[in-house]
Amino acid sequence: MPLPFLTADRGFEATDDVALPFDDRERWRRPYRPGPWRVGAAAILLLLASFVLFAAVAIAFTAPPARSGLVFGVALAVIVGALRLLRMGVWVSPQGLRHVGFAGTRTTPWERVVAVRTVQQPVRWLGLPRTVQGQALTLVRRDRSAGGAPPLMTTHNADFLGRVEAFDRAADTIEAWAAEHRRA
């Protein structure tokens, strides 16, 4: 089964005419690959789900159906959580910029975007309460101040921890995409 949200588009190059060159410009795209921390966490969750499914099958043969149904439900919840974890990130399309979190998604049309910029600031390490000095890609909207919005992505999140060059490429691509669509 193909998982299109795991693939990234070709990287941004200075010689390209457009910010994100690909065939179908109308689809939502994540201009970077999910990082090893995110993929590793999802793999561990899917491994856990396989054990829970095995337990559900064993319970289905030995216990009443209600118990096995409950365990199947837990396995399904773990699988959905792993897939949602893989889907998290920043997505772009001609309609706007989409920030997908674990519990929700915020979409901002390009008309409401004032700027997308990289700033040096304290950032959360892997989403935990601990903060370290790093870079963050921030979104400034017309209807809100820049200070209240969480960063779109940071050098210390699950996609870019230990991969500063990948963060720079992804931030440059998203900034170029924003510059192209704010002009149009």
Rank of each mutant, 00 (worst) to 15 (best):
A115Y: 00
P109H: 00
R84I: 14
G101Y: 06
V90D: 11
L76M: 14
L97K: 06
V100E: 07
A115I: 07
G89P: 08
V78W: 05
V90R: 06
W91C: 05
V113I: 15
P109M: 10
S93L: 08
G81D: 08
L76G: 13
T107P: 02
T108C: 10
W91Q: 03
V80K: 04
R87L: 10
R106A: 10
P109G: 14
T118L: 05
Q121N: 01
Q120D: 05
V113D: 09
P94M: 04
I79A: 14
A115E: 07
H99C: 14
V100M: 01
T105M: 15
T105A: 09
V113R: 02
Q121D: 05
A82V: 10
V90A: 14
P109A: 13
P109K: 00
G101L: 06
V116W: 00
V116A: 12
L85V: 10
L83H: 06
F102I: 15
V116D: 04
M88Y: 04
S93H: 06
Q120A: 12
P94D: 15
R84P: 01
G101I: 00
T108Q: 03
V114K: 02
E111D: 14
A103Y: 02
W91T: 03
Q95K: 00
V113Y: 00
V116E: 03
V113K: 03
R117S: 04
T118H: 05
F102Q: 09
A115R: 10
V80I: 14
V100Q: 13
W110T: 02
G96K: 05
R98M: 14
L85W: 06
V90L: 09
H99M: 03
L76Y: 07
L76I: 10
V92M: 02
R117Y: 01
V90M: 11
F102R: 05
A82T: 11
R106Q: 11
Q120S: 13
M88W: 08
T107L: 03
V80R: 13
V100F: 02
R112K: 09
P109D: 05
Q121R: 13
R84G: 13
Q95L: 03
V116F: 04
R84E: 07
G101M: 06
R84N: 11
R112P: 00
T105H: 13
T108L: 01
V92L: 15
V78R: 09
P94H: 12
Q120I: 02
W110M: 07
E111M: 00
V116H: 04
R112T: 11
T108I: 09
F102T: 08
